[in-house]
């Protein structure tokens, strides 16, 4: 799997962000190197970034995504591409720091290619922004001034498919399935990461749609896309698969959702 280099003005900030992102990775994690601080102070050092890239390249990773924090981290990462000695493919990501690291780690853990991980990481603000298009290029965050409007027709527990838009019909094709979100917290970061990991195990492409709100479809490989569906408890979700493993992949995802991602309260033990 590809590796990540995290560039920050602060080692503490970088370590905490990576630790937070790793909470979403279950199983083998992608290799990560931190290049943070400069000469023991806040700052970034292009030579340290170059060394981190070279170190990952030396391990034979097929690509490196560089995720950066504030302004000069981007400059240092750019200069590092000229200073490095390795020739592994490198992308300096355009995503936000915490979200970009998290989304990048989750998708990289599935063995996804560098360009796909870079796109996912770059679009990582979309979940916060409430966009339904997870593949859109990330717009500047400071332009987001309107609060995210949540649909009001989604009362918790309102699981009746009749409440969903008309397209919620019975599906016979095993490559498609509808399921209702049952866990109280809905499709938040951890469940989204589990779905990404699950679909990564199959030779299949699965699109996910929130039938209740009409949001999507988004690729099941995109943690950020899944979070942008705003799927809450009681919402109906559709999986549409294609590819050789489509039916088994869709079934695996459907069961994860139906089981509440292991977040359902267990019956009180005596």
């Amino acid at each position: 799997m590809i590796g990540l280099v995290v560039v920050s003005h602060s080692p503490g900030l970088a370590e905490a962000a990576v630790e937070l992102g790793m909470q979403m990775v279950h199983g083998e994690a992608p290799p990560v190197r931190i290049a943070a601080g400069s000469d023991g102070r806040f700052g970034t050092d292009a030579t340290a970034v170059a060394a981190a890239i070279d170190e990952l390249a030396g391990q034979g990773v097929p690509g490196v995504l560089v995720v950066t924090d504030l302004g000069s981290a981007v400059l240092s990462a750019g200069l590092a591409l000229e200073l490095r000695e390795s020739t592994t493919e490198v992308v300096v990501g355009a995503g936000p720091f915490v979200e970009g690291i998290t989304a990048g780690l989750v998708l990289a853990a599935t063995g996804a290619a560098l360009d796909e991980v870079a796109r996912e990481s770059a679009a990582a603000l979309d979940a916060k922004r409430g966009s339904s298009d997870a593949t859109a290029a990330a717009a500047p965050a400071e332009r987001v001034v309107e609060p995210v409007v949540q649909p009001v027709d989604a009362a918790p527990g309102d699981a009746a498919p009749a409440a969903a838009p008309a397209e919620a019909v019975e599906v016979d094709d095993p490559r498609s399935a509808d399921e209702v979100v049952v866990n109280p917290e809905g499709l938040h970061a951890r469940p989204a990461a589990l779905l990404v990991q699950a679909v990564g195990a199959f030779d299949a492409v699965v699109d996910v749609t929130n039938l209740t709100t009409g949001t999507g479809p988004v690729p099941a490989r995109s943690m950020i896309g899944l979070m942008s569906l705003g799927a809450k408890q009681g919402h109906a979700v559709r999986f549409d698969g294609s590819g050789p493993d489509a039916a088994t992949a869709v079934d695996a995802l459907r069961r994860l959702l139906a089981d509440g991602f292991g977040e359902l309260p267990t019956p009180a033990a005596g």
Binding site: S38, R41, G43, D45, A48, S72, S76, L83
Partner: peptide, 12 residues
Amino acid sequence: LVSTVGGASGSL
């Protein structure tokens, strides 16, 4: 300069 200045000034 790159490895000691830090920040944008070092890279630039």
